[in-house]
Design a protein around this nucleic acid. Sequence first.
DNA 1: GCCAACGTTGGC
DNA 2: GCCAACGTTGGC
Length: 138
Amino acid sequence: MAHWLVKSEPDAFSWDQQVQNGTEPWTGVRNALASINLKAMKRGDQAFFYHSNIGREIVGVVEVAREAYPDPTDGTGRWVCVDMKAVGPLPKPVPLAAIKADPEFADFALVRMSRLSVMPVGDAHWARLCKLGGWTRK
DNA sequence: GCCAACGTTGGC
DNA sequence: GCCAACGTTGGC
């Protein structure tokens, strides 16, 4: 099973809203590389939910509830979205600063490609982030 | 609020 | 098809 990280500005769509809504379309991705990542997601894959700009930390875990389909907020038909389901909050949110300070994450996309909003997370990085966040598999 | 990174647009 | 200008994202 692959793992991912998705970013959202809490001003636009926050973790609290994700939890309240349960399952929510992950729309608005308008970047080619991010879109490729969305299309590679499989139902049941889990992803970290990261608050960009405000907070700048990983706050929770979501799961792909529906694989890529045309983004209803896109008029051109070129872009896709997935449905994400809230799994649970991280007991200890992992701030970007902690990730940057850890040499293990020197080649992590969150650090290296700061503007990418949907990215894969390797098994080793996933395991380490779970540990840092106090997350035990659900 | 500033600025670096980077994607997109438009003139040629 | 190149590249300068511009807009957007997101860290600081």
